[in-house]
Design a protein around this nucleic acid. Structure first.
Lengths: 166, 166
DNA sequence: AATGTTACGTTATATTATAACAACATCCCA
DNA sequence: TGGGATGTTGTTATAATATAACGTAACATT
């Protein structure tokens, strides 16, 4: 597994999010083209909706948005797109929220950890080698072969902490 | 938060599980008595069913077992007991499985990590200070206040690995 | 164009969890 | 000790998340 040099910051309140979206979609296009994956109109749109912000979004929220846009959509419609996007490493599932969020490093098979603000709902994706190696060490001691990690930390982000000091 | 000295081993195939059960129930009784918590007949029975083995069990599985025993039980019955047991730190919820498993250190407010075998279904609870401190360090850097951790590693345990070499 | 494969539409249903209110039990103390 | 307060359980209904099964349409390759 490749390792990233930098961990992500929590998305700043004032960052230029349009850039996040266009960048994510461009990367997705390029990656799918390169890998021969079919980023269809539907899948692309779902990815775009997920990237609307940095807050993990539920499947039925996405479904409702698609429906409002006039598309005939039922649960399988959205779940199939989500499956594709997850298999292609374009999004992550946040298990503790039953929600989905855009991946910062599409195509890269990385062990991700998430810090999720319970106030603003934003999620920051990390790739901390220390966490990963601590887990690997435990696994080795147990003789355990790691397949999937679910590492999600809920709490309050710096921004919300400062702004809730009423 | 108190820190445990030893991390748990994966439950061995041949361990004396009856001891696990009686020990867990005795500890629960003692802890509840000491804390003035009411471990009612229902709650005690649910805890016992959860401790039937080391595999996290679903709420509706428990419900079915209660029903078979002749008790009038509906989903709220079981979910309320589960809530009580979780708040009392007698069980953990395994988020990635929507299932519940007995806690090894009742009453102790510990950060738990779980290694879950996808073959035999058993879960091993750990309390690795390295993982916890790595998370704490990231949180500090982000200015993030940690509330809840969900750390679950799925894979194949040593026992199942050896026995699937057909 | 024929064929196989992949994606999507559609209907139904499974699985997990909670809301709301009534009935009963237990506790506490005046 | 009796009577209100609190906590627990029963009961009915429903919310929220996810998948099964099967048909149809799009696409891709020959």
């Amino acid at each position: 597994m490749r390792r990233l040099k930098h961990t992500k910051q929590f998305p700043a309140a004032d960052h230029d999010h349009k850039t996040c979206i266009t960048h994510a979609l461009q990367e997705a296009e390029a990656y799918c083209k390169q890998q021969g994956l079919r980023l269809t109109e539907l899948r692309r749109r779902v990815l775009e909706l997920i990237w609307a912000n940095h807050q993990p979004v539920g499947a039925y929220d996405l479904l409702e948005q698609l429906t409002r846009e006039g598309r005939k959509a039922a649960p399988p419609t959205i779940y199939r797109s989500l499956d594709f996007l997850m298999q292609s490493s374009l999004i992550h599932r946040i298990t503790s929220l039953n929600a989905y969020v855009g991946c910062n490093h599409p195509g890269l098979d990385h062990a991700a950890q998430f810090f999720i603000c319970e106030d603003c709902g934003q999620a920051a994706e990390m790739d901390d080698a220390k966490i990963e190696s601590a887990i690997a060490k435990d696994a080795k001691r147990l003789g355990f072969t790691v397949e999937k990690r679910t590492i999600e930390v809920a709490g309050i982000c710096a921004h919300c902490k400062h702004h809730s000091k009423t």
